[in-house]
């Protein structure tokens, strides 16, 4: 098997007395969909935040292509090819779709923004994602939950990242939109991206993931090959009924 693109070893992160992550190991290989599941408060979003460069870890090491890294801010993580779509999406409601997509990375023509290049690229990207956005010039406040999520994902894909971290991407989606999103994750893998898929819905995860990592109270409480894991195994590991470790032998 190839060496991992992204690797965490024994990463810990506390917020005051709350220990959100404890000695977490995680490896993400090229073209792999790694799911991270866990109950509420298990530390999933904190893990996504560490990968995104929002929270510097208190202890442990993070490596990109085997090289140790320390992200000072979200821009640094992005520059190393890790794009994160946050649970709360982090879109600006007052800005339109194009403005949100390119926020912080706007192409310029001379000193002024190149709106035309942005608008073209926005359509290309949204078409690729099969998004049905009425216009790229409507404020995102006017979009549905699914459309907003697509915009957030499209923004993640802009810099052609190697790893896309999706935090609870199916949370506010209906049945059909969830199916579309899972499809999209498949397409991301086909296009050569690695995906870290954070969720608490085990059924969604089993449909797309290659490997499933279970977090419980900040610790890795089990790691499964997706084909080998049953819902019962996952639930047991999530709730702590019994610690399990199977597969994982990459």
């Amino acid at each position: 098997m190839t060496s991992p693109v992204l690797e965490l070893s024994r990463v810990s992160k506390s917020f005051g007395a709350a220990r959100a992550l404890i000695d977490v190991d995680l490896a993400v290989h090229p073209r792999e969909v790694v799911a991270v599941v866990g109950d509420n408060g298990a530390g999933k979003s904190t893990l996504a935040g560490v990968l995104a460069g929002v929270y510097p870890p208190d202890a442990g090491e993070m490596r990109v292509d085997g090289e140790p890294v320390r992200f000072a801010d979200p821009g640094a993580a992005r520059a190393r090819g890790i794009a994160t779509v946050f649970q709360e999406l982090a879109l600006c409601d007052n800005l339109d779709v194009v403005e949100n997509l390119f926020l912080g990375h706007e192409p310029v023509r001379g000193a002024l923004l190149d709106e035309i290049a942005m608008e073209r690229r926005a359509w290309e990207l949204l078409d690729q994602l099969g998004a049905s956005v009425p216009s790229v010039r409507v404020p995102v406040a006017a979009l549905t939950g699914g459309q907003r999520r697509t915009v957030a994902i499209a923004r993640g894909l802009l810099g052609d990242p190697r790893v896309v971290v999706l935090d609870e991407p199916t949370a506010s989606l209906g049945i059909r939109q969830t199916a579309e999103l899972l499809n999209l994750v498949e397409r991301l893998r086909e296009r050569g991206h690695s995906v870290v898929f954070v969720s608490h819905a085990t059924s969604d995860v089993q449909a797309v993931a290659d490997r499933i990592v279970v977090l419980r109270l900040g610790r890795v409480n089990g790691e499964f090959e997706a084909d080998a894991a049953t819902s019962e195994d996952l639930l047991a590991a999530m709730t702590g009924a019994r610690p399990v470790r199977r597969g994982g032998g990459r």
Binding site: A90, L95, E99
Partner: peptide, 23 residues
């Protein structure tokens, strides 16, 4: 029409999103 102006609007609209976008 400038990146500065775009940042101004973004920060006023959703400061956290602006931070996460690396502005």
């Amino acid at each position: 029409r400038t990146r500065w102006g775009r940042a101004v609007h973004a920060i006023g609209g959703n400061r956290r999103a602006a931070v996460l976008a690396g502005l």
